[in-house]
């Protein structure tokens, strides 16, 4: 019958109209901003720099200014300048640090490639999306003070991923310590006929941190002997995935 198709269609719209009052499958909008949506764990927006300690963010950045992300960034929105001096990192190893680290978020396209290529787990994706600014250049350019966020924040926004990263870093750190211990023991064994195993075993002990995702100052203050002069980029929390 002519017009039956239209009537059938109207029945569908009527069903959807009525359904939108009680059926959650048909009412999918949320009243933003009163009612925020829950962002999935993997949500990414702009990168931030992970620092180990909230009280001293600039001193505990994981970033060692290796400039890999700067080179790999497709729109070239990262700028890094290496420091002239070295500072002890979370492992107590002397490392360079970024004297300048800037991200131009007006250029950044949130592709996450910097996160993927970072061998130090130093840069991660943030979840902040309500960013508005009045100056299109200066306000959207984030320098390292603005970018640095503590590890606890990382745990808040990406709990599973952060736990996995922390576990990996701790394991690496432990492995490095074992190695240091072994080399220390070997060194101790070589010149002295009777080495004291207690000495070499005790020395690195405070360095082994607990697998705890909090912002305890996990940084060793004094560099370990035998590791202080190791070349940049060798060992440490580096792990290329």
């Amino acid at each position: 019958m002519l017009g039956s198709g239209i009537i059938k269609g109207l029945a569908v719209t009527a069903k959807n109209f009525v359904g939108s009052y009680y059926d959650p499958a048909r009412m999918t909008t949320v009243e933003y901003p009163e009612q925020p949506t829950v962002l999935p764990e993997n949500y990414r927006n702009f990168p931030f720099l992970v620092s180990e300690n909230a009280t001293d963010p600039m001193g505990t950045l994981r970033c060692v200014a290796c400039q890999i992300c700067e080179k790999e960034c497709p729109p070239q929105c990262i700028i890094i300048e290496k420091s002239k001096d070295k500072k002890p990192d979370a492992n107590g190893k002397m490392q360079l640090y970024p004297a300048v680290f800037g991200i131009d978020t007006s250029v950044c396209m949130s592709c996450q490639i910097c996160v993927e290529v970072c061998p130090f787990d130093a840069i991660k994706m943030d979840k902040v999306f309500e960013i508005a600014a009045t100056d299109r250049f200066l306000d959207l350019y984030l320098n390292r003070e603005q970018l640095a966020k503590p590890n606890t924040y990382y745990h808040q926004i990406h709990p599973e991923e952060a736990a996995e990263v922390d576990g990996r870093l701790t394991a690496d750190r432990k492995a490095a310590e074992e190695k240091a211990k072994a080399t220390a023991a070997a060194k101790a064994a070589a010149p002295v006929a009777a080495p004291k195993p207690a000495d070499s075993a005790v020395a690195p002990k405070p360095a082994s941190p607990a697998v705890k995702p909090q912002d305890e100052p996990r940084r060793l203050v004094s560099p370990k002997p035998g590791e202080g002069g190791s070349p940049l980029g060798e060992g440490g929390p580096a792990k290329s995935s």
Binding site: E70, Q76, C77, I78, I79, G102, I103, D104, V107, F137, L138, Y141
Partner: peptide, 10 residues
């Protein structure tokens, strides 16, 4: 066009 993160060729 001026950009804050110029490096390399830019």
């Amino acid at each position: 066009e001026w950009e804050p993160t110029a490096h390399g060729a830019v």
